[in-house]
Simulated scan of single mutants.
Amino acid sequence: MNHVQKAFIFFGLLLLTFCTSAQTHRFENEIQAFETQDKQSPPPVQPILFVGSSSIRLWPDLQQYFPDKVVLNRGFGGSELSDVRYFADRAIVPYKPKQIVLYAGENDIASSKLTAQQTYDKFVDLFQYIRQKLPGVPFVYIAIKHSPSRRQFWPVVNETNQRISQYLAKQTDAKFVDIRPSMLGPNNQPLGTLFKSDSLHMTDAGYQRWAPVLKPYLK
């Protein structure tokens, strides 16, 4: 084997390694962590499955908020609707949930700069896939909140929420839960005390506002 052939093989292997690495999804490690956790401690049977971005992932002691329900948190931080769709067969379907509660879409708008229509389209794609895989499972969508640090995106957030709300109103066993009013202060603006210092992620006080609004919709 001459030097040219060796160099060709070397660069071929290098390219293969790069392509394999590039195909690894950015949340693969988090999903693998869930799978490892499930092997070590089997998840509850037919839970109410909470899934989505960091507003779900960072919900402290979810069970404490809904003590009379069997709940499971499978949120993974920073995720967008397309990420939840990508991992649906591993992060949603295997749990055979009694009900699905989703919070996602905020990062689509703020991080990926998607329009309301684009975010809505990704939601519909995810919803239809879930309905295909888990027909008849009740579905709850938590409205995209008004994060103070993302104020410039509020018009898109409002339009996206409206589109998703109108869509779900036409679906069976599907609810749109608007938590935004519960987060407002006397000046009709989101209360700063409900958010951490980044004005994005919520404090425990924020979840205390969410829980009573959400509870009537849980099966």
Score class of each variant (00 low, 15 high):
Y141W: 07
K175I: 00
Q166K: 15
V140T: 08
F87Q: 01
R85A: 13
N161T: 02
D178H: 02
D61V: 01
K170S: 09
H146S: 07
R180G: 05
R85T: 12
P181G: 12
I92F: 11
Y120P: 08
V137F: 04
G136A: 11
S182W: 00
K145E: 08
Q99L: 11
L134W: 10
D83A: 01
G185K: 06
Y95C: 08
D125L: 15
P67T: 02
Q171S: 01
G105D: 09
K145W: 08
K175S: 13
Q152R: 14
G192V: 02
V101P: 11
Q64D: 12
F127C: 03
N188M: 13
D108Y: 12
A110E: 09
D121R: 11
V101M: 10
P155M: 07
L134E: 07
Q118H: 11
L81W: 13
P97E: 04
Y95M: 02
N161I: 04
A174W: 08
S82L: 03
L72A: 03
S112D: 15
P94T: 04
S79W: 08
A169M: 02
P148V: 07
Q166V: 01
N107A: 06
V157N: 04
L62C: 06
P67A: 02
G78C: 06
I179G: 05
Y167F: 14
S149F: 02
D83M: 08
S182P: 05
D121I: 00
F153V: 02
N158Q: 12
D68M: 09
G105Y: 08
L184Q: 07
V157F: 15
F139Q: 08
F127D: 10
I100V: 14
S112A: 15
M183H: 03
I100E: 12
